[in-house]
Nucleic acid binder design. Structure first.
Lengths: 228, 228
DNA sequence: TCAAAAGTGTTAACTGTACACCCATGC
DNA sequence: GCATGGGTGTACAGTTAACACTTTTGA
């Protein structure tokens, strides 16, 4: 990144930015355009500045690539193996988040050849230990999904239960029994029945729901155990 | 610590070392003997060396204070707020573990006034953000306890179910129904009935159990959900 | 005989899971 | 009519949680 900031040597952040769209989970990867890793894929990362926390830098780095603000990035782990980076001692702290996929706005910075959403099951070889970091993030995401509600900011304001189920199925890479999924979700009481329905094809119209933000947020704090 | 090592500036580790003994959960704290934090309590920490990972330094630091080797420390999180350390920019990575309390062997290093096991509900004011780190660790430990087996290396080779229950109750700071606890644990099939019993006071002797190491380790991988 | 901890049994409420089946729509 | 996804009912197995009860010991 070509920012006018004083950086701390040796310290970086790497963001694992998952995105959901079209029943598919992808991750943001960049193709390096300079230096020894030219032409290779890796996670979007950045140097830590002297006057910012890791969290702050991770958020700025996310904004630079996607234009998104106020997204909560979760700190995953710090990777500090002596030989993780060729030739230099670089320690990185990994963050991750899950957002709605937006193809238009992403852009590479000066020293990058490309920035792309890559489906998680089609990720190419990555530089350094980035594959390890990605796997770690995915595991964390999948655990998370079963303990706090998700979907806010990922689905349209009003959505059907099937759309929510599609999201869960994409994230966890498995399918759920429809009737049981409905009941399980509805019993958590974080959805509001919009009392509307949407016609979509040659079948019964689906009821629309929206998130009850208060209930949603309190469920984040309390947590639950979603099995199915 | 007065080690002959080249350190990386700005980077430290802090260990949250929990210990169990006498139905009580304690944490290892040190009283600083030099510098601006003289006389104050804090978590045992150390500078990261140029030729070691954070994990390696955390393990060495644990060994220095307790004489314990081959203890798996879990990385918790990295704390990097710009103002977390007065006057300097210091970034720390926190680790935690849970061991059997051993009062004899712990020793302060040259620049420390004291090293002590302090019961977790009697922790004094701590320096910097160490109280936040400790709370974070405790929360993590309590989550952990409900998803993987614990007790190996904390209880004697042969132990009663009540001793195991005491451990759980101390860690989670609550009590369990004895009959239900028994059944719940036994159904996980990671205990071996030693076919012995121990007389301890004016009541029926208790059956002794030991851990089935293979089952125990495979349960760590598989995980479970312990509610009660 | 009594207290104390060890250990068994029983029940009611709730969950997980599978799957049968009806509903509303477009073609 | 019938295919398609939307949605309800049900039934069995297993789990949770509370608590009554019996057992074995030492004093």
């Amino acid at each position: 990144m070509s920012q006018a900031k004083k950086i701390l040597p040796r310290l970086t952040i790497d963001n694992v930015i998952f995105a959901y769209a079209d029943k598919q989970l992808s991750v943001l990867l960049i193709k390096h355009g300079e230096g020894r890793s030219k032409g290779q894929w890796g996670l979007p990362g950045d140097w830590l500045g002297i006057n910012e926390s890791l969290e702050e830098r991770a958020a700025i780095s996310l904004f630079d690539r996607t234009g998104l603000k106020n997204i909560k990035l979760q700190q995953l782990q710090t990777f500090s193996a002596v030989d993780r980076y060729p030739g230099k001692r670089i320690i990185t702290t990994a963050f991750y988040t899950l957002i709605k996929q937006n193809v238009q706005k992403i852009k590479p910075s000066d020293d990058e050849l490309a920035v792309n959403w890559i489906p998680v099951n089609k990720v190419p070889k990555l530089i350094f230990d980035h594959k390890v970091i990605l796997k770690h993030a995915l595991k964390h995401l999948r655990t998370q999904v079963r303990h706090v509600p998700i979907g806010l900011d990922l689905l349209p304001k009003k959505f059907t239960l099937l759309e929510l189920q599609d999201l869960y199925e994409a994230l966890l890479d498995r399918s759920f029994d429809k009737p049981n999924f409905r009941r399980k979700i509805l019993k958590l009481h974080y959805l509001i029945d919009c009392k509307e329905s949407i016609k979509a094809g040659k079948h019964r119209p689906a009821a629309l729901y929206s998130f009850d933000r208060a209930a949603y947020k309190s469920l984040i704090k309390k947590g639950f155990s979603f099995s199915l």
